[in-house]
């Protein structure tokens, strides 16, 4: 099971999300799929260059064994951004769903220009 490491796992998740974005016609499901992709990228960065047995980079621990703090700090930012963009997408989706009466991309695109 050497090959089953976190980077392959997150890469797999990324393409699962991508598959969802391409195939799902429901707007909510595409938003979920993009979130899966985002989460997989975050997982990838958190575990990049992670040594087995390392401890969280919190004051009081042994500095020699601490995990790389940079990706962890960055990923908090990325998570916050992801949440706010998702919230914005959902807010817009409510408006679109009310106006066009559908949550299907294919139906919406035909109703838009009439």
């Amino acid at each position: 099971m050497e090959w089953l490491n976190s980077s392959h796992l997150s890469l797999g998740l990324f393409f699962v999300g991508l598959y969802g974005v391409i195939t799902q016609r429901n707007v909510i499901k595409t938003i979920i799929s993009i979130n899966i992709m985002d989460a997989s990228a975050i997982l990838f960065l958190i575990t990049a260059n992670l040594q087995p047995g390392s401890v969280p980079p919190i004051a009081g621990g042994d500095p020699a064994r601490m995990a790389d703090p940079v990706p962890q700090a960055l990923m908090i930012t990325a998570i916050v951004i992801g949440v706010s963009v998702t919230a914005m997408c959902l807010a817009l989706f409510i408006r679109v769903a009310h106006r066009y009466g559908s949550s299907d991309w294919e139906k919406i695109v035909h109703r838009v220009d009439d």
Binding site: F14, I31, M37, A41, I42, F44, A78, V85, C89, L92
Partner: peptide, 19 residues
Amino acid sequence: MMYLMINFLAMAFMLLGIG
């Protein structure tokens, strides 16, 4: 919404690339 979601998708690619 189209603008936001297309760019959101692209930014997921970018984040993984940065990783």
